[in-house]
């Protein structure tokens, strides 16, 4: 199975829809421990990215994601917006010159995104950030692909992201604005990790990849 830009654009379209659907939920999560703008900025960012994808006339997937990072950041310059933009750009670097993606490429792109987010945000696993859902999900995807088809592997990755998100409830924020809440952040899940569950829920949809 190889993914072409057409399918990537379809995924990004669905992702923009799903983030819009979950906007209020993300705002609620973020209002509990942040400044509450996560839902709004992510809605703006993913919708701009989907628009750019629908207007993209080439087939170089890497090139699209490289410029897509900047497109996203322009409308979402918040901290999370910058981290997501970095992830998008790193996927672009990883997929440079590629017109189709194998399952291994997808894993490599997601890993590059996770590493970029870790580097830029200076975060680690356990800091109660998006990484606590993203990293285990990517690891689950890579592991499942050894014995299963892409479809099943993406479902496992989604499930793992949700579990990672749930686990952030018990963690104490060590980074960003949420860290100002210190112990007060315990009991509330991380909104960035919540966003990752939305992304993986779209990747795991039956009719997309």
């Amino acid at each position: 199975m190889a993914v072409k830009f057409e399918q990537v654009a379809a995924v990004l379209g669905k992702l923009a829809e799903e983030v819009a659907n979950k906007k209020e939920w993300l705002v609620e999560l973020d209002s509990a421990i942040g400044d509450g703008d996560l839902g709004l900025t992510m809605d703006r960012g993913f919708s701009a990215l989907a628009n750019a994808a629908s207007e993209y006339s080439e087939d170089d997937i890497g090139k699209f994601f490289m410029t897509g990072g900047l497109t996203f950041n322009k409308v979402a310059p918040s901290t999370m917006g910058t981290l997501v933009s970095t992830g998008i750009m790193r996927m672009g670097k990883e997929w440079k010159g590629k017109t189709e993606l194998t399952p291994e490429d997808v894993v490599a792109g997601l890993k590059a995104a996770a590493n970029g987010i870790m580097e830029r945000g200076k975060g680690q696993l356990g800091d109660k950030t998006a990484l606590d859902a993203l990293i285990p999900a990517v690891e689950a995807l890579e592991e499942s692909l050894k014995s299963e088809e892409m479809r099943e592997a993406l479902k496992k990755a989604h499930q793992t992201a949700v579990e990672g998100f749930e686990k952030t409830k018990e963690m104490q924020s060590k980074l960003g604005r949420a860290s100002w809440f210190q112990e007060g952040s315990i009991g509330k899940p991380d909104p960035g990790a919540g966003l990752m569950t939305v992304i993986f829920s779209v990747l795991a949809k039956d009719d997309l990849l």
Binding site: G69, L70, N73, P77, T79, T82, L83, S85, T86, M89, R120, G121, K122, G176
Partner: peptide, 14 residues
């Protein structure tokens, strides 16, 4: 400041 560092780092990458 962390927000500025992130955005300048990203600009450097671009």
């Amino acid at each position: 400041y962390s927000g500025d560092v992130m955005n300048f780092d990203m600009a450097a990458e671009i």
